[in-house]
Design a protein around this nucleic acid. Sequence first.
DNA 1: GTAGATACTTAGTACTGATAGT
DNA 2: ACTATCAGTACTAAGTATCTAC
Length: 480
Amino acid sequence: MTSEERAKITDLKKCNFNEMAEYFKAQSEARKAMTKEDKLKIKAENERLLQEYGFCIMDNHKERIANFRIEPPGLFRGRGDHPKMGMLKRRIRPEDIIINCSKDSKHPKPPPGTKWKEVRHDNKVTWLVSWTENIQGSIKYIMLNPSSRIKGEKDWQKYETARNLKKCVERLRHQYREDWKSKEMKIRQRAVALYFIDKLALRAGNEKEEGESADTVGCCSLRVEHINLHAEKDGQEFVVEFDFLGKDSIRYYNKVPVEKRVFKNLQLFMENKQPEDDLFDRLNTSILNKHLQELMDGLTAKVFRTYNASITLQQQLKELTNPDENLPAKILSYNRANRAVAILCNHQRAAPKTFEKSMQNLQAKIDAKKDQLAEAKRDLKGAKADLKVRRDEKSKKALESKKKAVERVEEQLMKLEVQATDREENKQIALGTSKLNYLDPRISVAWCKKWGIPIEKIYNKTQREKFAWAIDMADEDFEF
DNA sequence: GTAGATACTTAGTACTGATAGT
DNA sequence: ACTATCAGTACTAAGTATCTAC
């Protein structure tokens, strides 16, 4: 709104947005009414654009670019209670764009009559294009697809660092437990924060500029108001109750029994503080990471999340996989192991809008299948009786086929029931994020090889491309 | 220590095309 | 052939981490 409009318009509820609603309705009608040929034409044009702009050559290899389309202008939403919600996101012009390529390469020319902001040749960074966005003033980048060499190697490295942590994690745990007793407040805070990061897989929690984005926190930026201490709760001693908004304003709520020493320390940290004061007032991510760097090469706070996620998957797979079960049951076990990690990392999603309905549909299918099974069993009984009376080859064959039918229906029923369990347990849990970013893919590849599960059951095409390095590398006895 | 800039990973959601079911 | 549903993808915001200059 202009400032005059802003003075005039005080309540959006009194505005009439029908014209806009009509416009979008018409757009969607038009899309629905498209003929097959129209759709094909659009598809072909998209493919052409992908071929022309979607690839680059890096180190003599043709690589797919992740986000080659520039972000269009629009109204900024942001997530959670964002102070900049509704601001206009400007259109990006050639004059905003920095191109990064090798000196001898032929890079895209700006549209006629325009100029790039800059063309540079920096081979120390991986981005191809950057521009500064007008909402937060941050830099945006165009980079390569996860299937690219450069991203794959980085990913591999990430998991190798996490595996290094595995080798020394017990030493570190011993160390921070000692530090709970330190004379220095700063060291105690560091040790308690690290305990949370390790035990609960919390994010590091960088400071954020107030008023620039939604009020969210991670471990180091927790405030007094985000925890509640209970000397005794639900029959457990020394319980810490967490309630705060984390990344993307996703709520973290958890009640955790902790060691007495941690509990006492927390009481100490909270003494004489207001709810809005920092819990760890002598600590930030940079202090924490500096300390971690001294304990292990390449160690930072987020490595704990990667490590704990991957080790949990490996351990859960060992625990949940039953060698005697069939393929769908094994895959349910995999999903459950994956789900344990997603819960640890607090990866949530809004329950799908159609969840209840789709659950009902599935239940109806299960009921129908049960009826079908009852019928098949009746038929089987009949066939048995027939055989007793007739004792001929034909009835013997009929009995066999009825037996098979019952088995088939039983298997179908079981598959449906497994599906229902899986879906119900997944209602508000998002598995994708941990699968893509936290779980060493070699664990999954090894598991598939060990139990003869086709890798396609676990990873779709895109995921197989991203994890090509792991599929190549891991054999069935890979240990994280 | 702090602030700002930079580069990269991690995150949830809306949309869309493919596929299963009728 | 048509529709409902679901998996996969595109999108881009929101984190982490590091470096530099004071």
